[in-house]
Design a protein around this nucleic acid. Structure first.
Length: 813
RNA sequence: GCAGGUGUGCCGGAGUGGUCAAACGGGAUGGACUCAAAAUCCAUUAGCUUAGUGCUUACGCAGGUUCGAGUCCUGUCACCUGCACCA
């Protein structure tokens, strides 16, 4: 059967009749979303198909269950690859992107996905990115978008700063040979840390998220409680964060980050040269090597005053202190921190033990980092670490020398990109007024069509038409910001735009957004655990606080699908030559076959390998089903089949709901295997069960048996508990057992002749009903069933005496 | 270093305290059908044993909890992933 041809037919009909387009209504909604793709030049591969199929099955199931299902698709179409392609081909990235999207759409349509295409969004269109800019202005207004100078990741091949996730093992994700440099630049940030607590605590409420993702996010946000302690340096107060205030008396030096913005103010004239040399040396070190560096530092020449002992403590600049965590400076307690210990050894700084396991001092060959009992700590001696933390902090608070505080590992989100193909940041720099936001009515700030790429530099910098602008405040000549936004900004709220994609006046209609959103089930890979899935939560909370949303979390249930590998078990990639394209599989077997195969290998959250032999298996099954149902004899469903159908409806419904697609397929296989004569209604039910998985074949068979309308829009079958009878399963077991026994004995006897089976009278009918099956499965043509009380039975060995329930006697002749 | 995950027959994988663990698929072997092949159907696929449903072994390894463990706990090994000088 040419499934491919048949699939085209149904895809066209679905599209023509717009059956997957939905509107807000009184019906209960259900929002199924798969993470939208970046439309790359190479198109979709089977891994994408896997992702979308998982969502499509759920969407089709929910739709048939009667929910008003929104299942949209769009394109995350800003980004570097399009720009690089444009540079190479001397064209505009828009052209490249539009072509890629066209290709994606046609490929996705071939997968038979039940999207509402009328809701498509494309993030690189001005109608969309206008609202990125609008959100930026709102963030700016609330002080949550700001510019600061800090050390950032820089790729010299891409010529831009990068997000942390675009740095892999210290190298750029696109340029394996390009080591990431740490540069100090003035950049735009979104203040994600403003919501750090809520982002952290909110995870508890996300019951339908995988624990692994929640843990990743918790680690990423990394909340730690501690104290901030004020040290005085050159008559200025420097707060320092620590989680170990109990070791305060062991502080023998301070270390300030070599990248600290105010480092200069600490450096004395005679140390200036040494410090400068040190900082310079460090700036040439790549991100990859930075963690391999030995702990090094240089004395700044300044001394701090210990808040409690009033001792003089030297201040060093060090390479192991982060500028953007805590206060960018640490109090070093070499006796109780391994890094500080190494540093102290190297520079011959005293090591003072203040915590001890047994309450006595002992020699250390490495730092003692466990909690213990305080010594050498004045009036705090003999307290254990836990109490000491509280008491010392109390003392500091009372003397106004510190406070209790918490710190996050989460950094504010660096969103500037020194590239062209992204959302322009709506900011104007005016000589008189400084940094001025564009006014809302001037949005969108469009990317110019007329551009010239010079090498890999951002062409906006040369584009007068774009660059030169009047200051909205004073009207004088100003200059536009030429950096664009990280593409993750676009993807942080796209799920809301689907609810009202064509709204030209507002980001979205409030009532529409709050009807459709939040997303009920969101499907995608776990590589987004700490980036996209944090940003989308951040944006949701911000938009809520603007009064636009009535919920706190964007995604109710998150599902992480596994990764599809090539047949060799490696990640699918062009260079490895193991990429499988949906088109080619579709042509050979039909896309329904591929869909079925992808989800029957394993639970969809597991990584799987493509397998040519495996798809043959799915193909065999579907061909069998197609043949069988095409030539089916409609009639009556017997009780055995009715039991099976009802049981399957029950179980498959549960399996789909909980993403046990692989188990659902097993049950469907078994169901279709046992269909012979069946009523029209029951056959319709069986096809409905198949339809979310293999929608085209199901539509075709549906129309063949005279089903009403589209099966895709039909009502999901209900099961009748009273028709489920476990008796039939038990009977099957009896037959299995008997077949086994007969085969077993036959093998020992070495001959297959007449077989006499002796069973209990009440079991006789069951065996008689299945005698033909017995014959086929044992390969023995003469099988006679006797009840033990049959008078004229042939039983030379008196086997019938040993017969027990479910345990027939067997005699071979 | 920190955090998380995984480890089950020839292979992919079901199975998370209890009817004899291995569903289902794939592969292999044998058989039926066929002149033959493909397709289809049936059987076998840890070991021993027996004219039968019995025994042994077995869920990475070692312990433990339990009447009972693949499943829970502790330790350990291997592999994978993420973060990584976070004070």
């Amino acid at each position: 059967m040419d499934f491919h041809k048949l699939e085209k037919k149904w895809q066209n009909r679905w599209e023509k009749e717009k059956i997957f387009e939905v509107k807000k209504s009184k019906k209960e909604k259900y929002y199924v979303l798969e993470m939208f793709p970046y439309p790359s030049g190479s198109g979709l591969h089977m891994g994408h198909a896997f992702n979308y199929t998982i969502g499509d099955i759920l969407a089709r199931f929910k739709r048939m269950q009667g929910f008003n299902v929104i299942h949209p698709m769009g394109y995350d179409s800003f980004g570097l690859p399009a720009e690089n392609a444009a540079i190479k081909n001397k064209s505009h990235p828009k052209k490249f992107t539009e072509d890629a999207i066209k290709n994606y759409i046609s490929q996705q349509k071939e997968l038979g996905l039940s999207y509402d295409w009328s809701r498509m969004v494309t993030t690189s269109s001005p109608e969309y990115y206008k609202w990125d800019q609008w959100i930026f202005l709102k963030l700016f207004e609330k002080g949550l978008a700001y510019k600061k100078t800090s050390p950032v990741n820089w790729c010299s091949e891409c010529n831009t700063v990068l997000a942390n996730e675009q740095v892999q093992n210290g190298h750029c994700w696109r340029h394996e040979n390009c080591k990431i440099k740490i540069k100090k630049l003035n950049q735009w940030f979104f203040k994600t840390t403003e919501y750090a607590d809520e982002l952290y605590d909110g995870l508890e409420k996300l019951e339908k998220w995988p624990n692994s993702i929640k843990k990743l996010q918790k680690n990423w946000i990394g909340r730690s409680f501690g104290s901030e302690i004020n040290f005085e340096i050159n008559n200025k107060t420097w707060p320092i964060f620590t989680t170990r205030p109990d070791t305060l008396f062991g502080v023998t030096f301070l270390v300030v980050s070599a990248q600290h913005n105010e480092l200069d103010s600490l450096v004395t004239d005679e140390q200036k040269k040494k410090v400068e040399k040190f900082v310079k040396k460090l700036s040439s070190v790549s991100a990859e090597d930075i963690d391999k560096l030995e702990k090094e530092g240089v004395f700044t020449g300044s001394y701090a005053i210990h808040p409690l002992t009033k001792e003089k403590i030297p201040v060093y600049a060090g390479n192991f202190v982060l500028a953007d965590y805590g206060c960018g400076m640490v109090m070093a307690v070499p006796a109780h921190d391994q890094r500080d210990f190494e540093f102290a050894k190297k520079y011959d700084i005293p090591i003072k033990t203040v915590v001890s396991q047994i309450g006595k001092e002992s020699k250390l060959d490495k730092a003692f980092t466990n909690p213990g009992v305080l010594i050498n700590s004045g009036k705090f001696n003999k307290l254990d670490s836990e109490n000491a933390k509280t008491e010392i902090t109390k003392e500091l608070i009372s003397k106004k020398l510190g406070k209790k505080t918490k710190n996050f590992r989460l950094r504010d989100w660096l969103i500037s990109r020194q590239r062209f193909w992204g959302t322009p940041i709506p900011i104007i720099y005016c000589e008189d007024c400084g940094t001025v936001p564009v006014s809302e009515k001037d949005l969108p700030i469009k990317l110019p069509d007329n551009i010239k790429f010079k090498g890999s530099d951002n062409p906006l910098k040369e584009n007068k038409e774009f660059l030169e602008v009047k200051c909205p405040k004073c009207g004088k000549v100003g200059k536009r910001e030429t950096d664009t936004m990280d593409t993750f900004v676009n993807s942080s709220w796209y799920y809301l735009r689907y609810s009202d994609p064509d709204n030209a006046k507002k980001i979205f209609d409030k009532s529409k957004a709050n009807y459709w959103a939040p997303v009920d089930t969101y499907i995608g890979g776990n590589e987004h655990a700490c980036m996209h899935l944090i940003y989308i939560r951040f944006f949701t909370k911000f938009l809520r606080d603007l009064g636009l949303l009535e919920f706190d979390e964007p995604v109710v249930r998150l599902f992480n699908q596994g990764m599809l590998h090539g047949e060799d078990g490696d990640k699918m990639s062009k260079s490895k030559g193991n990429v499988v394209l949906p088109e080619s599989v579709s042509k050979e077997y039909g896309i329904d076959t591929a869909r079925l195969f992808l989800i029957s290998i394993a639970s969809p959250d597991k990584d799987i390998d493509w397998d040519t032999k495996g798809i043959e298996g799915s193909s065999k099954f579907l061909n069998k089903v197609f043949e069988k149902i095409s030539n089916i004899k409609l009639g009556k469903t017997d009780a055995r089949l009715a039991s099976k159908i009802n049981k399957t409806i029950k179980e498959v419904s549960e399996d789909i709901e909980s993403f046990r697609y692989n188990l659902a397929v097993i049950k469907l296989r078994s169901l279709f295997d046992s269909i012979e004569e069946i009523s029209k209604k029951d056959l319709e039910s069986a096809l409905k069960l198949l339809s979310p998985f293999c929608p085209h074949i199901a539509e075709e068979l549906w129309s063949k048996i005279g089903g009403n309308g589209f099966i895709s829009l039909s009502k999901w079958p209900k099961f009748d508990e009273s028709k489920i009878n476990e008796k039939f399963d038990k009977e099957d077991e009896l037959i299995d057992k008997l077949v086994n026994d007969i085969n077993n004995i036959a093998a020992i006897v070495g001959a297959k002749k007449n077989v006499f089976v002796y069973v209990l009278p009440q079991e006789k009918q069951t065996y008689l009903d299945n005698v033909e099956i017995l014959k086929v499965r044992t390969g023995i043509s003469d099988i006679t069933i006797y009840a033990v009380n049959d008078k004229d039975k042939k039983d030379p060995e008196n086997k019938s005496k040993k017969v027990k329930p479910g345990r027939p006697g067997i005699h071979f002749e």
